[in-house]
């Protein structure tokens, strides 16, 4: 098995404010990853919705507890006009220094409209530099997501669902068809052999293994992926190589 890299694209770490399920620290997460054989994970903070800047700091601290560098961080952005985050150039260099490889946003909790007026500066720079943008905040919010993608059609982005369990093909497929940089993760996408169907239609490069931890365990989706009927190359891409490629491709 270990000839295949598993790199989790959908993983939250740290305690939440509302008593939600959580993995509190790096050692708890690494222990879970070891139990199931997951090599690496892109982490974002459970409590992003309760504070972008504080959760960014926490993610940086978590990464200091991971000397083997199995984890890569995600930071949350905010509208540029309030000067809460620095200009893109500086923000990205800070990300690089902290081993943070992707960004996310939480516009509905942080109370702003996710559009060009608010996020144009940072997201245009992200698109140009191919910095992956996690779209976890849009899970199940299709109208808002469609509007967002129209505003930022050239983003390298990863839609993370893992809230519902009913396959969302009627909404996912138009986005995969129309936006080249739109990717999805597998957490909660439980459609029988559906991962293979999407890979055949849109390319395995567009799909990333995600656990949806801590709500979901890492293992169920691994077995699903293993036996989805993918060829070895596509399996390896989805299991980990795609995320590795996206993170390496970011010009921070």
């Amino acid at each position: 098995m270990k000839d295949c890299l598993f790199f989790d694209a959908n993983c939250k770490l740290g305690a939440g404010a509302a008593g939600e399920a959580c993995l509190p620290d790096v050692s708890a997460l690494l222990s879970e990853m070891d139990y199931y054989g997951v090599d690496r994970a892109l982490i974002r903070h459970t409590n992003i919705i309760k504070g972008a800047l504080t959760s960014n700091e926490k993610i940086a601290e978590f990464l200091c507890d991971d000397p083997q560098k199995r984890l890569c961080g995600t930071w949350c952005i905010l509208p540029s006009q309030c000067d809460e985050i620095p200009a893109p150039e500086l923000f990205f260099s800070q990300m690089k220094a902290a081993r943070v490889g992707a960004i996310t946003l939480s516009p509905f909790e942080h109370r702003y409209v996710p559009c060009r007026l608010t996020l144009g500066k940072i997201l245009d720079a992200a698109a140009e530099r191919k910095v992956p943008v996690l779209l976890d905040a849009f899970a199940g919010r299709w109208t808002e997501l469609y509007a967002f993608m129209k505003e930022f059609p050239y983003l390298t982005c990863i839609y993370l669902e893992s809230i519902g369990k009913w396959g969302s093909d009627r909404n996912l497929r138009p986005l995969l068809e129309n936006y080249e940089g739109f990717h999805i993760d597998t957490a909660g996408y439980w459609v029988p052999e559906g991962i293979r169907d999407l890979a055949e239609k849109y390319g395995a490069e567009r799909i990333l293994y995600g656990s949806g931890s801590p709500r979901y365990n890492h293992g169920n989706g691994m077995l699903q992926l293993r036996h989805n009927g993918l060829n070895d190359n596509d399996f390896a891409l989805i299991a980990g190589k795609n995320l590795e490629r996206l993170l390496k491709g970011a010009e921070l």
Binding site: Y36, K165, W166, G167, W190, V191, P192, E193, G194, N217, H218, G219, N220, G221, M222, L223, Q224, R226, H227, N228
Partner: peptide, 17 residues
């Protein structure tokens, strides 16, 4: 709930518990 959910996902969920 077949055909809603993949058998390997379901069995994988039991084996992962």
């Amino acid at each position: 709930d077949m055909p809603w959910f993949d058998e390997f996902q379901g069995i994988g969920g039991v084996l992962s518990a």
